[in-house]
């Protein structure tokens, strides 16, 4: 069995998005319950959040954005820039804790304390750009982790797999000209889903050309098409790139029971995807993999999805 970290903190529940918002704290409670009921809490290394040093946020985001975000919270504003981004007084601190917790998790993996980890954080991050919050996202957790691996741990190649049903425009945008971070995303075709980017001709810019790869999926498609696209696009790309660490933007909103998209993945397909990503980490990255929660709004399904996810990380899934 592998040594798997699980980043979870009750303070992640404090980010209150108000009534009827899909990105709600019940999501995390369902995830925790899923692990608890399967007896996994005692098998993982539980990691508590710690506040990020703002300097690490600044390796991705503009100081102006960080300050505007903090100020909006202090003023008690209930949204930032757009009605999608609902918030409360604790949102800024929660986002700081999420990033800090993830960077601490990265350290544990790089120091060899653990092999891999699942970070069940809120708010999510992959839509957030350098100076723009959007789509429920404030700080781009995964992008900060990728750059942290480059700066602090001096890695040459970081691979990101984003299987949230929405395209991670923020992550793509941040690394599009950077050949040291490979961004791969599979998502519902942008003509039918938010945010409208992630077309197959978006392949990076300048020196980063060829280090961004998108697999758009048509509405109504499911397991078979996902598997075929991952085999055709992601597997050979990572075989060639050979990432030293794999970061996963783990969004569960492509599930058939999730009404945020028209994609119909089964619970089993999420397991298949994760088994293959873990397999790639074993092959190329010495097993080093850090998975970070993005979307996933079918609360009734999150328990089983998170349980399977962590069992696969542990290597204990039958």
């Amino acid at each position: 069995m592998r040594r798997t970290g699980f980043l979870y903190d009750e303070r992640f529940l404090l980010h209150d998005t108000g009534p009827e918002h899909p990105e709600c704290s019940a999501r995390l409670l369902a995830i925790y319950k899923g692990l608890e009921e399967a007896g996994l809490i005692s098998k993982v290394r539980l990691i508590k959040a710690s506040r990020a040093d703002q300097a690490w946020i600044e390796i991705v985001h503009s100081i102006k954005l960080i300050m505007r975000f903090e100020e909006a919270c202090l003023w008690g504003m209930n949204e930032l820039d757009h009605p999608d981004n609902k918030m409360c007084r604790e949102t800024f601190e929660t986002a700081m804790l999420a990033v800090g917790g993830i960077l601490h998790t990265v350290d544990l993996v790089m120091e060899g304390e653990i092999d891999n980890a699942f970070c069940a954080v809120r708010p999510p991050g992959h839509h957030a750009e350098v100076s723009k919050v959007m789509g429920f996202c404030y700080f781009n957790n995964v992008a900060i982790a990728a750059r942290y691996l480059r700066r602090k741990w001096k890695l040459q190649r970081v691979g990101i797999v984003d299987f949230d049903v929405h395209h991670g425009n923020g992550t793509q945008n941040i690394f599009e000209d950077d050949p040291s971070v490979f961004y791969y995303s599979i998502h519902e075709h942008p003509s039918f889903s938010y945010p409208g980017t992630g077309r197959d001709f978006e392949k990076g810019t300048g020196e980063g050309y060829g280090f961004t790869l998108n697999s758009p999926v048509l509405p109504g498609w499911g397991d078979a098409e996902y598997k075929a696209l991952l085999e055709k696009d992601l597997f050979p790309a990572f075989e060639e790139f050979k990432p030293e660490v794999i970061l996963v933007s783990a969004g569960f909103d492509a599930h058939v029971d999730d009404d945020m998209s028209d994609i119909k993945l089964s619970t089993e397909c999420f397991s298949w995807i994760m088994e293959n990503i873990v397999g790639m980490a074993d092959k190329y990255s010495g097993g080093r993999l850090i998975s970070v929660l993005e979307g996933g709004y079918a609360v009734s399904r999150l328990s089983e999805l998170a349980r399977n996810h962590v069992e696969i990380l542990l290597g204990s899934k039958a």
Partner: peptide
Amino acid sequence: LLTVNVAKVKR
């Protein structure tokens, strides 16, 4: 619609 949050309005 300039939003990611479409499930509710679709219903």
